[in-house]
Simulated scan of single mutants.
Amino acid sequence: MKLDPVTLATPFFILAIVLEIVLARLGRARAAYEPRDTAASLLMGLGSTAAGLVTGGLAAAAALYAYQHRLFDIPMTAVWAWVAIFLLEDLTYYWFHRLSHERRFWWAAHVNHHSSQHYNLSTALRQTWTGGVAGTWALWLPLAFLGFPPAMIAIQKGISLVYQFWIHTEAIGKTPRWFEAVFNTPSHHRVHHARNPRYLDRNYAGILIVWDKLFGTFQPELDEEPCRYGIVKNLGDFNLLRVAFHEWAGMARDVAAHPRHALGYIFGRPGWSHDGSRETSRSLRADWAARAVSAEESPPPQPAPFR
């Protein structure tokens, strides 16, 4: 029987959500819950599990095929192999996560995770129904081709997902400085879920925040700028089908309306348009940075002369 860290941790997920709700009601923890939003997150999680059963076989078959043509034999019993898979899987997750924000096709599968305007432990369970169809599982195939057994890769992916559950909370502030320097934390991940222009498309880390620092996508959470959660244009309702498929539907409408620019509307940055009439995360950040520079350069207002 294959060890599945996510399945083993599911009872803990539910208990932790209940505990966070109780502590928030008692005024002992910072956590905002809205019943319809929480229900949407939980149902998205159930739907994601069901969708995974449908598409998981293809991903598993592809991993086994890659492993049959592996370059090396890497033993699951070696400590160094687990250290290596930890680092390589976490690096793979960083690039998967970054791709899922920077290209619309994969953003369409990932956006539902960001669609809640609340940030609590239930948000961690608001997962994709279409990730398997989008094929992002293919990014992990090189690990099997190198020689890591597919079961080993799956276990490490599960460990990463379990780790990422606890960082979806406002109840925990900043952790010790050494921990914040190396690991992904609630503070770092709050930035990732924020829609403030300063915070857009930052902190893609799974477990190690060092990847963001290495590749220039790190942004610390600032006390002077609280996080505002959700997506740039929030949905405004809790319809599950809209949560799961709204970006796919928008993409299809754009392609139908502008077939000559289909590739741009499918694989361009989210918000890309052929005439530049829409805003992307990059343009929103640039506008924010320009305003910040302008505000710094403008002299403070002078008091009116006394008469």
Rank of each mutant, 00 (worst) to 15 (best):
P259N: 15
L146Y: 15
Y65L: 02
I159F: 04
F267S: 14
S277D: 09
V133G: 05
A61S: 08
N196I: 13
F245S: 13
A59R: 09
E225H: 04
L121P: 09
L8G: 01
A59C: 05
D275K: 03
A63T: 02
I159H: 02
I14T: 13
A66V: 01
H110G: 06
W288G: 08
I207L: 07
E180N: 04
P301N: 03
G56A: 10
D254G: 09
R285C: 00
F12G: 06
A256R: 15
T49G: 03
A244F: 08
W178V: 13
D90E: 12
Y163S: 11
L125I: 06
P270E: 11
T217Y: 03
L26S: 11
F238Y: 15
A290G: 08
I266A: 10
A124D: 05
F105N: 09
L208M: 08
P300L: 04
H193G: 12
K233D: 07
D223V: 08
W211M: 06
Q302L: 13
T217C: 03
L222I: 00
H114Q: 11
H189Q: 11
L208C: 01
E20L: 07
H110A: 07
L146Q: 15
L99W: 13
F238S: 12
I14V: 15
P303G: 04
A9V: 07
K213D: 01
W166E: 12
V54N: 02
G47P: 04
E221C: 08
D201C: 13
W106R: 05
V83D: 05
L88K: 00
F218L: 05
L23F: 13
G56T: 00
F13R: 09
L241W: 12
V210L: 06
L53I: 03
A194M: 10
L23G: 14
A50E: 02
F148R: 12
T136V: 14
L235D: 14
T169D: 12
G250Y: 11
M152Y: 15
P176E: 06
Y119I: 11
A108P: 13
N196Q: 11
D237Y: 07
A109D: 05
L3F: 10
Y67Q: 00
Y119V: 07
E279G: 08
R25E: 14
M251P: 01
S41E: 09
G206W: 02
E180D: 05
L87E: 04
S116Q: 13
A144S: 07
E296H: 00
A292G: 06
A290V: 07
W140P: 04
M76S: 09
F306N: 03
S41N: 15
A134G: 01
P11C: 04
